[in-house]
């Protein structure tokens, strides 16, 4: 029993931190660009597919981990510059329709190119096997994912909170016109935020693609979870997204232990309860980032 609980906790924290990579991008894009990005799950899936292709072609997981997110970033640049930019400031419905369209297009393209069969990303031998953590044996690779996700989330948080770039980003979100008047190219900042989000999603795709499976349905599956997280954490709040991601990760893994068929229900139940108590989410509205 203790084993199961320890294992579920480890899994919950690990999947929570990886989910945070996806949710953080989603919430940053919403907080700063006011865009609800439905294509975020598709970008996550693209990361996994790019990763699996690179890992097969070059035989290197590390190269896949480095290159695939950057390629997803390039796709992000294209989406932001050529389609989202003309729509800023319009009714959010336009953004939803556009990005939802992208999600469907990317998913269709993936099936066309790589087919409907599941793929995998091969891991380097140094990350295989299990490590004994006292009561349980835990796969080395999953510990690696936990560490790298935590480090990345910490890095992004520091960058937003402390760096000059972070201050400009937050300022642009708060008052675009003023930042523009001060001589800063706001459109570049917006592109940057979108690309950062895309890269984080791509990274999560490679990290999870190597421990789960890479398949055309993975994007649509994760986007629901990511939205629940963003709503619970408070739309636009980075801190909230990370906290909510951990919460959802733990709820999902404990849920699977107790009532596997009810995990989805638990997820949405949690969201409903949070929204009843705090309609703006845990950290919503009162802070910008």
């Amino acid at each position: 029993m203790i084993e199961s609980i320890v294992r579920a906790t480890l899994l919950g924290v690990q999947s929570g931190m990886t989910l945070a990579l996806i949710a953080a991008g989603l919430t940053l894009i919403f907080g700063m660009l006011d865009v609800i990005n439905f294509a975020h799950g598709a970008l996550y899936m693209l990361g996994a597919y790019f990763g699996s292709v690179i890992a097969v072609e070059f035989g290197s997981f590390w190269l896949a981990l480095l290159l695939a997110p950057l390629l997803v970033g390039v796709v992000g640049i294209a989406i932001e510059m050529f389609s989202l930019r003309p729509l800023y400031g319009r009714n959010p419905l336009y953004h939803i329709l556009l990005t939802f369209g992208f999600a469907i297009m990317i998913q269709g393209a993936v099936v066309q190119i790589w087919g409907g069969q599941a793929r995998q990303i091969a891991r380097p031998t140094m990350l295989t096997g299990t490590l004994s953590l006292g009561v349980v044996n835990y796969p080395v690779y999953r510990l690696f994912v936990l560490m790298i996700s935590t480090a990345l989330i910490g890095g992004v948080w520091l960058a937003i909170d402390r760096s000059d770039l972070g201050i400009i980003m937050r300022a642009s979100a708060h008052d675009t016109e003023m930042v523009d008047a001060l001589g800063i190219d706001v459109s570049k900042v917006f592109t940057g935020v979108f690309v950062l989000g895309a890269i984080l999603a791509g990274l999560a795709g490679v990290l999870l693609g190597a421990s789960r499976s890479v398949n055309p349905g993975m994007g649509m599956g994760i986007i629901i979870e990511a939205f629940v997280i963003v709503v619970i954490g408070g739309l636009g709040s980075f801190r909230g997204a990370v906290l909510a991601a951990l919460l959802i990760g733990l709820v999902t893994s404990y849920g699977a232990l107790i009532a596997p068929t009810l995990t989805d229900l638990l997820l949405f139940g949690l969201m409903a309860v949070v929204l009843m108590v705090k309609p703006n989410g845990l950290f919503g509205a009162t802070e910008a980032a």
């Binding site: 199961s4 294992r7 899994l11 999947s15 999870l208 421990s211």
Partner: peptide, 8 residues
């Protein structure tokens, strides 16, 4: 998505 808990 993740079979860890079931494998436990």
């Amino acid at each position: 998505d993740d079979y860890s808990t079931y494998l436990g």
